[in-house]
Write a protein that binds this DNA or RNA. Structure first.
Length: 576
RNA sequence: GGUCCCGUGGUGUAGUUUGGAGUGCACGCCGACCUGUCAAGCCGGAGGUCGCGGGUUCAAAUCCCGUCGGGACCGCCA
């Protein structure tokens, strides 16, 4: 049907008779017998000179056959790759008529996202979406190549699996053949990839679709794609190397540049310096430790287990209103309050609370934060986790660069705690999942009998972070039944409960489990970062809105009564 | 569960602070003109439940309350 792609025609093609197919991007009429049609396909636009175009409207689908010729002297368009040539002596075939598009697709100006999703098939024609879809395909391809080259085998795991109560909320699918019973859609292939290890697959990978019924965000959809991988007889460092290779290959496939070795940072350092386990290291404004400097303070608000601050360069020009809003924001994030200080000439601090602080304390703040004239210092005092959390969020709020700035700062965050906190009953809450291997040096701390010691146990879990986004996480798994039993006991999970939930995995481990470790990272997030997009919907062909709706298909929808009956279901009336 | 922002012809926006006739702009659309344009140009035209409901007022796009939809975030996401 076609001999060439629109965007590919060049001076070398002059003299050839070609057929091109595509959509009418624009039409410029010059009287009855001369008109220009810009015909667009996924490769770009080419100008076609036709004898009248009055019945060729925007977005009509055409096949145009003609001769490639150089443009007349002085009419080249340097803004187009095809701008030195045009297709002349055209025969035009209308393959499809089209109503005027519901919104412009020439990339000029933003269109309301809901409109774009309502007519996604039109939106996908845009240069932006074509670029993002193809970029994503290149990333997938590079990842598959990299994993294949490292000896990984692609194994597909089921979409209809058993629900487990841990982790995110499951999407469930009612069973027709077993009324009242449900499948769950996988939050990840976690247990299956471990079964693959027991099965001697040695190195497994999959670009897996994962589903979690949690609230949506700019970087979270119900369904998302992960590079999921697991390998036997390997260390944490081996897994990091495998994954770094895949990410580097994907990055190189898009940018042409291969990122250098990814640095590592411990979880504790990330929390103390950036107030986040996924630090955005593209900018400074790091959290500064002030606790010791106020150990004997007279200022009640600073008599707290932890005092930390950040320095906002040039932030001293914020108005009182802006600072009040910032304080309110900090309170909404959980702080008791927010102390702000403007830095004047000579380093003297202006603040409503300055009068409660000694000269030495004020000087200490300036010294510790390195604040200079015109800066703003923000200080939070509270329990340590809360201080980190609030200052970490303030730092992002006030300093985070746009996604397209600062390059790609890949970073491994290592030595996560095994348990993130104790619950009301004093039982530890796993930070990762209950199959995560404790750090070899910390295993003894599991048995001291002091619950506080448990919180200091490091795990062999590691995250890959880039520009403040958690790309993925992984861990060395427990393959020894005695260690696994100990963890379950600490978590308050009885043998019966463990068997009920994970019996098939524990049973599998009885038949010879190799030591293994793995990782998974979010393809959507990596692609968004590489595409310079602030949200992953821009790199997903048919995403959901924040409320989980699809404006195009109207999903989710009600199903008819017979269908419900067949599944043994009854819909309850809505409760307010 | 919570906080904040947004909603005006097909699209994007100005107007909202300080109430006074659906008021403007750009693009698109329809018709006419136009033989070298390329964000074509030029002339004319059509197109509106100011998201929806209620309230205040002589008068509401504008102020108040509620609601729906979209977005950002906190919680949530082992």
């Amino acid at each position: 049907m076609r001999t060439d792609l629109c965007g590919a025609l060049r001076r070398d093609d002059v003299g050839r008779t070609v057929s091109v197919c595509g959509w009418v991007q624009s039409r410029r009429e010059h009287g009855e017998h001369l008109a220009f049609i810009d015909l667009r396909d996924h490769t770009g636009v080419v100008q076609c000179v036709v004898d009248g175009a009055h019945d060729l409207r925007s977005e009509y689908v055409l096949r145009i056959t003609g001769t490639v010729r150089p443009r007349p002297e002085g009419t080249d368009n340097p803004n187009l790759p095809t701008g030195e040539v045009e297709v002349g002596d055209c025969t035009v075939e209308v393959l499809s008529r089209a109503e005027p598009p519901p919104f412009p697709i020439d990339g000029r100006g933003d269109v309301d996202e809901q409109h774009r999703l309502r007519h996604r098939y039109v939106d996908l024609r845009s240069e932006r979406m074509q670029r993002n879809l193809r970029l994503r395909a290149r990333v997938n391809h590079a990842i598959r190549n990299a994993m294949d080259a490292q000896g990984f085998v692609e194994v597909e795991t089921p979409m209809l699996i058993a629900s487990t109560p841990e982790g995110a909320r499951d999407f469930v699918v009612p069973s027709r053949l077993s009324p009242g019973a449900f499948y769950a859609l996988p939050q990840s292939p976690q247990l299956f990839k471990q079964l693959c290890m027991v099965g001697g697959v040695d190195r497994y990978y999959q670009i897996a679709r994962c589903l979690r019924d949690e609230d949506l965000r700019a970087d979270r959809q119900f369904e998302f794609a992960q590079l999921d991988a697991e390998a036997s007889f390997v260390s944490q460092a081996d897994v990091q190397a495998f994954i770094s290779e895949a990410v580097a290959a994907a990055t190189e496939a898009v940018t042409g540049e291969r990122p250098t070795v990814f640095p590592s940072m411990t979880w504790l350092e990330a929390m103390e310096r950036f107030g986040s386990d996924k630090p955005d290291t593209r900018f400074g404004m790091e959290l500064v430790e002030l606790t010791e400097r106020f150990s004997a303070t007279e200022f009640n608000a600073f008599k707290a287990p932890c005092v930390k601050g950040i320095c906002v360069p040039g932030g001293g020009d914020k108005t009182r209103k802006q600072l009040d809003d910032l304080t309110e924001q900090a309170k909404r994030w959980g702080a008791k309050g927010l102390v702000w200080m403007r830095v004047g000439a000579g380093g003297e601090l202006t603040s409503p609370v300055a009068k409660f602080l000694s000269e030495g304390e004020l000087a200490g703040i300036v010294e510790a934060t390195g604040a200079a004239e015109g800066d703003l210092v923000l200080i939070v005092a509270d329990e340590r986790p809360r201080v980190r959390h609030v200052l970490g969020l303030l730092r992002l709020e006030l300093g985070r660069p746009p996604v397209t700035e600062g390059g790609l700062q890949f970073l491994w965050v290592v030595d996560f705690p095994l348990f993130e906190a104790l619950d009301e009953a004093g039982l530890p809450i796993p930070a990762h999942h209950p199959f995560t291997m404790p750090h070899d040096e910390d295993v003894a701390l599991l048995d001291t009998g002091d619950p506080q010691d448990l919180l200091t146990v490091r795990s062999q879990a590691y995250d890959l972070v880039c520009n403040g986004w958690e790309l993925g996480s992984g861990s060395v798994r427990i393959h020894r039944p005695d260690v696994q039993a100990r963890i379950f006991a600490l978590l308050g999970i009885s043998d019966e409960e463990a068997n009920a939930k994970f019996g098939f995995l524990l049973e599998a481990f009885r038949y010879g489990a190799p030591p293994h470790a793995g990782f998974a990272f979010g393809i959507d997030r990596l692609v968004a970062l590489l595409a310079g997009e602030e949200n992953i919907r821009e790199v997903i062909a048919f995403p959901k809105t924040q409320s989980g709706q699809d404006p195009l298909t109207k999903a989710p929808t009600a199903i008819d009564a017979r269908h419900l009956t067949e599944l043994g279901l009854r819909v309850l009336p809505k409760v307010d």
